[in-house]
Amino acid sequence: MTTSEPVFHTNPMSRGRIVRWMLEELGVEYRTVVQEYGRSMKSPEYLAINPMGKVPALQHRGAVVTEAAAICTYLADAFPQAGLAPAVDDPLRGPYLRWMFFAAGPVEAAVSANALGLLPPPEKAAFVGYGSFEQTIDALEVAATSASPWLLGERFSAADVYVGSQVDFGLMFGSIPERPAFAAWAERLRGREAYKRAKAMDDALMPAKG
């Protein structure tokens, strides 16, 4: 498939919510395809797009991009007019990439391991990239504290979408501890119009209760 319009594969109960927000921040036209757990996600057609059988996934200009952090990074570069990524020669490019991949690596791994009760004992901490849950959360707090108002200062970026989503989700589900810097940043993020639009769109796709 080759198209200039992004095709967004998602499910409202997934990390696809992060990518939806990113797309809304970009302000571009895109097509949404909702994939169902255990059904269309495992179909031969979708497995040809993402062999993991998971969402989100993005098709754009003949390319397939998976993993929420990669999709956000890709979209910010593919649509530079939105100004959501520093240019390669911009000094802010370093901090931008640092926090994006810190959230995708150590934060994701540490939070998941903690939730599952699979954290390594202290003497084995050197075997995992995040070291310890506490160390990772402390480093994430450094990022949140520097977000004044955003990770790159006055400039909102895809890093706020992706890293901020980790904090936002973590506070909602209790997987990240309540800290003033986290709460203040999350409040600013939730006030963005693109965040509100994306949330409303995904909430409308949730299965009806009853």
Rank of each mutant, 00 (worst) to 15 (best):
residue 50 N to F: 00
residue 62 G to M: 11
residue 61 R to M: 14
residue 48 A to E: 09
residue 50 N to K: 08
residue 60 H to K: 05
residue 51 P to C: 05
residue 66 T to Q: 11
residue 38 G to M: 03
residue 57 A to N: 06
residue 53 G to D: 04
residue 55 V to F: 08
residue 52 M to I: 12
residue 57 A to D: 03
residue 44 P to N: 07
residue 64 V to T: 13
residue 37 Y to G: 06
residue 64 V to H: 12
residue 61 R to V: 01
residue 56 P to H: 12
residue 40 S to V: 00
residue 55 V to Y: 06
residue 45 E to R: 03
residue 58 L to R: 11
residue 55 V to M: 07
residue 38 G to Y: 06
residue 56 P to I: 08
residue 65 V to N: 04
residue 37 Y to A: 12
residue 46 Y to V: 01
residue 38 G to Q: 01
residue 46 Y to E: 00
residue 43 S to Y: 11
residue 38 G to D: 13
residue 56 P to E: 08
residue 39 R to Q: 05
residue 49 I to M: 10
residue 41 M to S: 11
residue 37 Y to Q: 15
residue 48 A to Y: 02
residue 40 S to Q: 01
residue 56 P to Q: 09
residue 62 G to C: 08
residue 53 G to I: 03
residue 40 S to F: 03
residue 48 A to I: 00
residue 46 Y to G: 01
residue 57 A to G: 04
residue 39 R to G: 02
residue 62 G to W: 02
residue 43 S to F: 01
residue 39 R to F: 12
residue 57 A to V: 06
residue 66 T to C: 13
residue 60 H to P: 02
residue 55 V to W: 04
residue 61 R to P: 10
residue 61 R to Q: 14
residue 54 K to W: 08
residue 50 N to L: 00
residue 39 R to T: 14
residue 39 R to E: 04
residue 42 K to R: 13
residue 61 R to N: 15
residue 58 L to M: 08
residue 51 P to I: 02
residue 66 T to G: 09
